[in-house]
């Protein structure tokens, strides 16, 4: 890590939501790495093995891939595999939730059910119990 600040990679293809998330993360003293494309986020992660984020904030439905594909794309990398993923989605069928959790996602949250600061607290919780 280049500095001591915590870093969260956010994948969210709705521009407005991404903006709100990034703003709130920054105000909470967290560095946000925003991506509106799943593929670009995966590429970034593979290209920066020494500068990985502390947590990945993942929207399930992205225009270029879904959560399952995203998890599949980062699974092969041992270091990357250790980064906790929190899924923040619009819908959560129990089958999808259990598949994502089985693939290693730490939590699956429904967007409209949470305040932004609540999600950020959950993210911080992951950081505290995480790999640091």
């Amino acid at each position: 890590m280049t500095d001591n600040k915590l870093k969260v990679l956010v994948v969210e293809d709705e521009q407005l939501l991404l903006e709100a998330i990034v703003k709130k993360l920054e105000l909470s003293g967290i560095v946000a790495l925003p991506f509106s494309s799943g593929k670009q986020a995966v590429r970034y992660l593979h290209e920066h093995p020494l500068d990985l984020p502390n947590v990945i904030w993942l929207d399930y439905y992205l225009k270029d891939m879904d959560g399952l594909e995203f998890m599949g794309a980062i699974k092969g990398d041992e270091q990357l595999n250790k980064v906790p993923v929190v899924v923040v989605s619009n819908s959560a069928s129990s089958e999808r939730v259990s598949r994502m959790l089985a693939l290693g996602a730490k939590q699956y949250l429904l967007k409209a059910e949470y305040r932004l600061d609540e999600i950020i607290d959950i993210i911080k919780g992951q950081l505290a119990s995480g790999t640091l």
Binding site: E14, L16, L17, A20, I21, K23, K24, N90, S91, K111, A112, R115, L116, D117
Partner: peptide
């Protein structure tokens, strides 16, 4: 739900 989340989060900000 997407625009609802946007209204929710921005008004909270």
């Amino acid at each position: 739900r997407t625009p609802l989340s946007a209204v929710k989060w921005f008004s909270e900000l």
